[in-house]
Nucleic acid binder design. Sequence first.
DNA 1: CCTATAAAGTCAACGCCGTTAACATAGCGC
DNA 2: GCGCTATGTTAACGGCGTTGACTTTATAGG
Lengths: 198, 198
Amino acid sequence: MSTSAESYHHGDLRTALIGAGLSALEGPDGATLSLRGLARTVGVSATAVYRHFPDKRALLAALAGEGLRQLGESQAAAAQAAGGGAKGFAASGRAYVRFALAHPALFRLMFSQGNPADFETRENDLARDLLSEMTLELTGNPVAAERMAHQAWAIAHGIAMLMLDGRLPAEPALIDELLDTDALFFGSTPKAATTTDR
Amino acid sequence: MSTSAESYHHGDLRTALIGAGLSALEGPDGATLSLRGLARTVGVSATAVYRHFPDKRALLAALAGEGLRQLGESQAAAAQAAGGGAKGFAASGRAYVRFALAHPALFRLMFSQGNPADFETRENDLARDLLSEMTLELTGNPVAAERMAHQAWAIAHGIAMLMLDGRLPAEPALIDELLDTDALFFGSTPKAATTTDR
DNA sequence: CCTATAAAGTCAACGCCGTTAACATAGCGC
DNA sequence: GCGCTATGTTAACGGCGTTGACTTTATAGG
């Protein structure tokens, strides 16, 4: 009865806090959201938060979990829209980076927690499951699939992070180019290199 | 005369602060270093810091710059020890990830600043220059070199970050496997999943 | 040599933060 | 109807980054 509609005392504080937290993460200075500030925007005393979360970390973990869920949804939708298969796989990779660029503070939060076990649950782990499924489908080999999953995750995550940090320009064309699995490293080596023409 | 030996009032505070900051970043809870705490360990009043850095961000930027310099050194050393060429390139990639795992808080700090321009200087940008040189040497083509550099950076960075966050196990064998340029994605799989496009 | 000036450091204070303890209130089960 | 428990409040603590007004010290110039 803690997480239902809106009834008793003030409303559903837990849900309200998470909502406020998510929207605070969207604005500028989303990197520095404070427990007190959050309580203020929800219109509640600072210490009321502690009835729903043991401490700030727990609140952040909940936000990260929600972000993870949304990321999984985005990727799944993108993969399906692209018609699955290799196209879908590539689309889910682009969706990963796009999500990071669209929600920088949330994305950073999702990957700066102590240990993922605090908020990675069966339900919000869609992204991970999807990745496993897709690579298995593409390779047909569990061992190769796992390596492919790891490498794909790493490169998408690397691109996302470097762009968020301003180390790489956050241009859509660059995302596509770097994620292009046909052109990875030497894939198109000698002459090819001319792929960039456009 | 602000950054020289050690002479006048207290010593070279700026250098001392950076040293203390770097060593604080090595310990646990290095993620939460405080200006006051740093001043305390150096044996100086909290506000003395402001004679050398306009604010905390500037101090952190200085630490990040120093970290960047060290990272470049590590990579250059590893590349040279491996004899340059493709071997050297692979070695520098491993060194990148190893550095991240060896100095988690420092590495995170290096890649969570607002904009890199604040601390990326000609002298500490060794890592970036090295990467450009190596990929150009390997491809012989400026365009291909740049893409290779971006992709290599992204995958190394992704591996490092995911391991730091506990999303991937931080095992040396896995680092090697994921960085293996010959086995990237479909490199070693038969049918290569035929990504089709293009 | 001695003094003006500016660099380097100190102290007190402000407002914000996360968190704890003690207290108030409202809804539900018996 | 009563008590229990979930939910919320107020007051307070210590720590933080930062500012302003002050003190000390090194050094440069007459």
